[in-house]
Design a protein around this nucleic acid. Structure first.
Lengths: 247, 247
DNA sequence: GGTCGATATTGACCCAGATCAAACGGCTTG
DNA sequence: CAAGCCGTTTGATCTGGGTCAATATCGACC
């Protein structure tokens, strides 16, 4: 029983609060005024913890909300009837999940936490409502969707034209850049996904991913120990990307 | 000089008119009431013809509008500095082009007409304005963007996990289905793109595409003469997709 | 703190599709 | 209607990454 002058955690603080969130600048509130962010606070329908290995949603689930990652790390994947599957993306704090469901009113991929995570639930009907009123929110939401399309085009490029080592270099540089944007080290990070998941995302087998990691290490570009990666020569990785095919 | 009682084509009729357009059910107006479609008429900022081989927009162009294809056929592609390029999609009548530009205010890919085409210009600021007022338009626009994301995931799946013949089968079935939705024959159609463009889209070399076409013909699944394709055994093509990897 | 299953590394071999090369067909142009 | 060109087909060969297999290593759970 709490002492009389201890204020119990209020429901509203449990119910998320974009205005208090340190991901403001990366997440949906980006570009909104104080006032507008306060309106977002009302919109967010609470938080939800998702344990490592658990689904946030599954292909076929009814679509009702999109989700902002408060903390943690996710993958999305698609499963074909014949058992083949493909990781379509990895998402980290501040990124939005679930937009695949808008088009058909049910989700078309699975979203799985790769570590214990927490997300903010954004009921979609209310998001549309508010974005009819708040121009900046409408704009930003459209930008978020568009960037997802552009990101996917980048992955198509990667899968369609790049060689194994280029793919992995692009992947590492992308992760590094996103960690940097979140205030983490650009050089050193912990991979939350397995070699198999990386391979699935990059259209490669896990052995090929492992070999490419080893090769990069031999060449002094990175150092790897299992999931721990340190980038020693970022410029070298970039060079791997740009040249190569200039035959 | 026209005879006195010949009414010259009015500017408004030149200025497109969703309410008159037979693509209503496929395009942006889908799901809108008569009244709401009339509002769309005002929004559409005119039409533009794009000759075969010409660009509708280029990567780097300022983003101002999205485009609805009134008639014709387009491809979008991305060009890397080193000369490699990848076709990211083929678009036909009723489909929307240009959403890649929303996120950054400039286009991130090239859009090129594969036959003489005509598009409706939809200034984006005005689309956002109107979709703040017309709920159904807002909803449908979000669905169109979401479906683009889902389509891209499908292509990622194709590029990441499928073998050459599966890719081509998926491609042909997809085209067939889209032609059908437009009232054309599901069995017989004219490819607007070259083997090289198909290959680029599917992450294959043109020779591999050509060989896969020949193989399908030998197997009695289709008949091909250059760009003319007739699907003889659609079920057979579908079988190629679903099974195979059930090892 | 030892056991066990999941994950990762490394090696040997193989194959689907790339590459190189030649010839052909159908279109446009003079 | 011949010439030339682009796109396509087909054949021969090569190779990057897949496949199969053997260890090694880690982390979770008794």
């Amino acid at each position: 029983m709490p002492a009389p002058n201890v204020v119990p955690i209020s429901l509203t603080s449990l119910k998320a609060a974009c205005s208090q969130c340190n991901l403001r600048e990366l997440c949906l509130p980006y570009g909104l005024s104080e006032n507008e962010i306060a309106q977002l606070d009302h919109l967010v329908g609470g938080r939800r913890k998702v344990k490592r290995g658990h689904h946030l949603y599954r292909a076929g689930d009814a679509f009702e909300a999109i989700y902002a990652i408060k903390m943690g790390f996710f993958k999305t994947d698609i499963l074909l009837e014949d058992g083949r599957d493909q990781v379509t993306g990895f998402q980290m704090a501040g990124e939005i999940l679930g937009m695949d469901g808008i088009g058909t009113d049910f989700h078309t991929c699975n979203s799985i936490a790769l570590e214990d995570s927490e997300i903010c639930i954004i009921p979609f009907a209310q998001l549309e409502q508010l974005s009819r009123e708040v121009r900046a929110l409408q704009r930003h939401f459209h930008q978020v969707m568009s960037r997802e399309i552009v990101r996917d085009h980048g992955v198509m490029m990667l899968l369609g034209t790049m060689r194994a080592e280029e793919r992995l270099a692009a992947f590492l540089l992308n992760l590094s850049q996103r960690f940097t944007a979140r205030g983490y080290s650009p050089q050193e990070f912990h991979l939350r996904m397995t070699r198999e998941e990386i391979g699935s995302y990059l259209g490669l087998k896990l052995e090929t991913v492992s070999r490419a990691f080893s090769r990069f290490q031999e060449d002094g570009l990175i150092s790897v120990h299992q999931k721990h990666v340190r980038i020693l020569d970022g410029a070298g990785l970039k060079r791997l990307l740009n040249h190569q095919a200039a035959l």
